[in-house]
Simulated assay, not measured.
Amino acid sequence: MSDSPAGVVDLLGVLAYAELTAFLRLAEDAATLAPTLTDRAELSDLAAAEYANFRLLRDRLSSLGVDPEGAMAPFVAALDDWHAQTRPGDWLEALVKAYVGTGIAADFYREAARHVDKETREIVDEALAEEVRSQFVVERVRAALADNPKLGGRLALWARRMVGEALSQAHRVAAARPDLALLLVSAIAQAQDDASSEAAGGRAEAVTDLVEIGRLFARLTEEHGRRMSALGLVPGP
């Protein structure tokens, strides 16, 4: 049985399942949407990296005495729903999802990782490294926009849809997993003293503080805008 805080186990569990599903979706997109064999190979490389990250997180859970499947199980519905709502219709949509959609999720997990132990934080940071993904996707999307600038409006709308779905699922997860939500809303966690933590319902009230959650999502939105600009797309409101 694990002695790790519930929030740490939740963070590793949700991230492990996110990496596993990213591997499966990228592999599918590579097989069905990639226009050339080179593109298929590039996206397959990204899929392989996601699977390696999944194994890293799975092994960390096991080392903590946690059953990986049990840790991932609470997040299956939310992540599967997000993927179902954001299934790409073509190659460019798949690339934007791989960069923008996965990117905002990564920011979400990085926020939580600020408040875990050093070893777990380092593993999370390693799993969320995106330099390779950035180079490949940015080059492909920018080249497509240079050839046909009219694609920009459609892809920007697609990216906004993904982010909206991601934030919706994030609220859902935060409501269901308060220990994970406490990691995300750092100002709340730091403001709590011993008396408030012992008070009945104190943690639930803190987690649902809309002001602090709003600040969190403002930071996520700022990073989303940076990624959109990197792709040559106009960030939405």
Score class of each variant (00 low, 15 high):
V116Q: 02
R154E: 11
G236M: 10
S186R: 11
A166H: 08
A174G: 04
M1A: 12
A106Y: 10
G236A: 15
D147F: 03
P235Q: 09
Q192N: 03
A73N: 05
Y17N: 08
E130C: 02
E42F: 10
L15K: 08
R25L: 09
E93T: 10
A34N: 04
D29Y: 08
L151Q: 08
A187Q: 13
G13R: 08
A191R: 09
L220M: 12
D193Y: 03
L43W: 07
A146S: 13
R55Y: 06
A48I: 09
R203F: 07
R219P: 07
H115N: 13
S197V: 15
L56E: 09
A47V: 08
D209N: 15
T38E: 09
S186P: 02
D209A: 14
R203K: 12
R55P: 00
I188V: 15
A230I: 11
P235H: 07
L128N: 03
A113Y: 01
P35Y: 02
D125F: 12
A218E: 14
I123D: 03
P178L: 07
A200D: 11
A129C: 00
R219M: 11
G236N: 05
A144E: 01
A16D: 01
E122V: 04
L220R: 11
E122Q: 14
G202P: 01
V66P: 05
L145S: 05
L128D: 01
L216E: 05
V137S: 00
L233A: 06
T32N: 00
G70W: 01
E223F: 02
E130L: 09
E126V: 07
V207D: 00
R87A: 15
V124Q: 00
D67G: 09
F75N: 04
R58G: 06
A174P: 00
L157K: 11
A146K: 14
A106M: 05
L57F: 02
V185D: 03
E119L: 11
N148L: 06
P35R: 02
R177L: 07
A144K: 07
E93C: 02
P5C: 08
E126C: 04
Q135C: 10
T21I: 10
T102L: 11
G101K: 03
L155F: 06
D193E: 08
R142F: 04
Q192L: 13
R87Q: 13
N148F: 01
S186E: 15
L216T: 10
H224N: 13
A112E: 01
I123K: 07
A27Y: 06
W91Q: 01
I188S: 03
A204H: 06
V8S: 08
G153T: 15
V207C: 03
L33Y: 01
T86A: 08
E42W: 05
A73M: 10
Y17A: 00
D107E: 13
V116N: 00
I213P: 01
S196H: 04
L183Q: 02
T120G: 01
A6Q: 10
A112C: 05
A78G: 06
R142M: 04
A31H: 08
L95C: 10
H224S: 11
V66E: 05
A94K: 03
L155M: 07
G153E: 13
E93V: 04
R60E: 14
T36C: 01
A218V: 14
Y51T: 12
D39V: 04
